[in-house]
Nucleic acid binder design. Structure first.
Lengths: 148, 148
DNA sequence: CTACAAGCTCAACTTAACTTGAGGTCAAGC
DNA sequence: GCTTGACCTCAAGTTAAGTTGAGCTTGTAG
């Protein structure tokens, strides 16, 4: 296949390290897009690799598909995101990430402190209280942890 | 209630911020323990609050109930965990946290880089490559956890 | 031109971590 | 002694993020 050619699901799967079924799934969820050949087979533009990469990385970090979907929705459909598109997305995410990193650090430091503190009082334990705050934030109806 | 008294599920729920049903659930999973009154109602020792706190915090960090259960199993049954018990747990978990923070930073930096880099080349994109690496790592049957 | 690998759809199953509900029991206040 | 609210059990439902399988179509290599 000449470079620049469109990709089949299988190719995307191989290159992205994501299962074909997962790609179908992402498409059903609107996270990626494809068009079809005359024979009804999916064909993807190269931007899909970028999108999938983003999805995976974000998931590693515990961002839900729903959230990822919202972020990706801000990218223009069908064309490879431009520098500016990227800028918007990544700036927004970076802020969220910064926040999250910060919280995790606090949590970590809390843990470290708790090694020494004895923490007999649940109510005063900084760790516990942090946990509460995070729990409240991160949890819609439910939280699934692939992550955070 | 005099201090030192045993707690009912409702009380534990209120004090720990966890639903009664979740407490039942944890008990079924062996993460916490109770004994019963003559009328078959659960009564918890005070150590349960600490355990629940641990469970919640660990979850924040992305540790599964199964793993938490294993860790808690190493704590002596029935008594409030000591400082040393805590030390072991929190050291291990802090590593998981560090890992997670690290991943978040990578994602953030990847995003940041991508603002400027234009990243038209998927193959060279740092984000992409990170994604690949992660994909390979977690690829087994399915990954659910943060793995250290 | 015919295998057979890849694709397609759709429904059902999976796991984690709970929640909800039905149907029945216990205990404390009036 | 009765009513009300907290408990109990057990089964079934829920959400996320996919996977698996059946049954059928495409496309490509020999």
């Amino acid at each position: 296949m000449a470079p620049g050619t469109e990709l089949t699901v299988g190719q995307v799967a191989m290159r992205s390290g994501v299962a074909v079924s997962a790609l179908h799934f992402y498409e059903a969820r609107g996270l990626i897009r494809s068009h079809r050949t005359s024979g009804n087979q999916r064909r993807y533009g190269r931007d899909v690799l970028r999108r999938v990469a983003i999805i995976k990385v974000a998931q590693e970090v515990g961002i839900s598909l729903a959230e990822i979907g919202e972020a990706l929705a801000s990218l223009p459909e069908g064309r490879t995101p431009t520098r500016d598109d990227w800028g918007l997305l990544s700036t927004a995410w970076r802020d969220a990430l910064d926040h999250k990193i910060d919280q995790l650090k606090k949590l970590r430091d809390g843990l470290t402190d708790c090694i020494g503190c004895g923490c007999m009082s649940i109510d005063k334990c900084p760790l516990r209280n942090k946990g509460d705050r995070l729990a409240r934030e991160g949890a819609g109806a439910r939280r699934l942890l692939v992550g955070p």
